[in-house]
Amino acid sequence: MSVGQAIPTMVGEPPDDELQQRFLYEMLLIRRFEEKCAEMYTRGKIRGFLHLYTGEEACAVGAISALRDDDKIVTHYRDHGHALARGVEPNRIMAELFARVGGTNEGRGGSMHIFDVSKNFLGGYAIVAGHMPIAVGLGLAANLSHEDWAALCIFGDGGVGEGEFHEALNLAAIWKLPVVWFCENNGYGMGVPFDDSLANDVYKIAAAYQMPSVRIDGMDVLEVYSATQLALAHVREGNGPYFIEALTYRYRGHSMADPELYRTKAEVEEYRKRDAIERLKRSMIADGLIDEPTYQALVAQVGAEVDEAVAFADASPEPGLHTLYDHITKEYEGESG
């Protein structure tokens, strides 16, 4: 797999010092959180499928930082990073992974299905591209209510082969919906390289649906942020959807069960040299925005937060068996809503 040339999308002022600090902090938090998840998985605290986001942090942080609080997000099953970037409490995400009552979904969802309505985080979805039509409905709702919030739909390159991708892009285009389609192209649909899966580049396929479509460097948080800001401005003005293909890379396997027979260690190492966190750190040091001790303090801070999340999750009780049938349907009280 090779990474194509990024289309320049940087416009306007770069993010200010404070925002760059936040980017660094959030990417470090996600990295640390995911590493801890891997450890908790091997210790049997986390069960089921576990898909880690390590390496792709710049996508979540850059894209989600560009949103307003009233914008809505739907994403795929590699969703911890997105939830963290949206400000969902690490404690509650970890508790969900531990399948505890204190989890975001009270232990009903698990790693692939994190929800937090209070943050307009409307879920991780585990059927590839299955959430893309939902983003169409969110965009439709924004238009029908004549409000200027937008929907951000994050999905992987694997989703591009699904019919729902094409239906969703077409619907958003013909109805001019405020949806930002954000493709995290990490190079592989599980273990199959996207070059072997798709007849054309992702952003070119999207462009066929008559919307602006750009390919960006998904391992540069500043570029992701800038591109998403542009996209959001476009969709909020009633111009219809916008498509971003962010080239990125996951350092770990597809899931914890992945023996990674389809790629070489050298390839992974090559991408690690372009690590988004290291890159931002270097540029911030060069710009005099942080120094090494400040950076180490951030690392210690996220370490403590993640440890606290594990302690919180561990202390949270398992759901009682008497709650098995809770939440199958919402109770009818004579009115819908």
Binding site: I134, G137, L138, G139, L140, A151, E164, E167, G337
Partner: peptide, 14 residues
């Protein structure tokens, strides 16, 4: 699939 999913999304948004 697209329109049923759009219905789900619009329902989620009120």
């Amino acid at each position: 699939s697209g329109i049923v999913g759009a219905g789900v999304g619009a329902a989620l948004a009120g």
